[in-house]
Design a protein around this nucleic acid. Sequence first.
DNA 1: GCGGTAAATTATG
DNA 2: CATAATTTACCGC
Length: 170
Amino acid sequence: MKATINTSEGEFTVVFSSAGLMSLVFPLGVNEIFIPEDLEEPTEEQFQNYLSLTKAALNSMIDGEPPEQLPPLDLSLGTEFQQLVWNTLLEIPWGETWTYAQLGREVDRPTGARAVGTACGANPVPVLVPCHRVLSSSGGLCGFTAGLPWKQRLLEIEGAWLPLKVAVGD
DNA sequence: GCGGTAAATTATG
DNA sequence: CATAATTTACCGC
């Protein structure tokens, strides 16, 4: 089930399965949508509920405030490692930024920062799964599936864009 | 300290 | 085996 959400930043496209939000696409349609053939469509009731939650969360973030409630996410299309990384991303506090190395430690891969970055790039639900809050150890943006401008914009919205003073959790 | 190059590292196709 | 949204070390400026 595909739908669109209008925000002040443009029109996002989202895809829902019976389990929840499956994919989110930026206004410019940079990232592609992958819908498995055996996808289980959500009921009209679920769809309305998911769409409502997604829209609220998305608008909150673009408005500069942390979303109160995220919609359920269907991450079944990723590998175990990817799901582990995405799940860890959800634990990053609003306005904080982590580094790929730090994230690697969290998932028990102290030296697997690169693999973590690749997993983040495979994230089907940008923004809501804060893959944009992850920077390189030197405070650089490195990369972003939908384009670096988006990554920087999102960080500015959260007030987390501090290259020289990247949140030093720990 | 900053920029370029090289080797080490892990997950994925 | 090759690639990637990294990191660290080494070198020269």
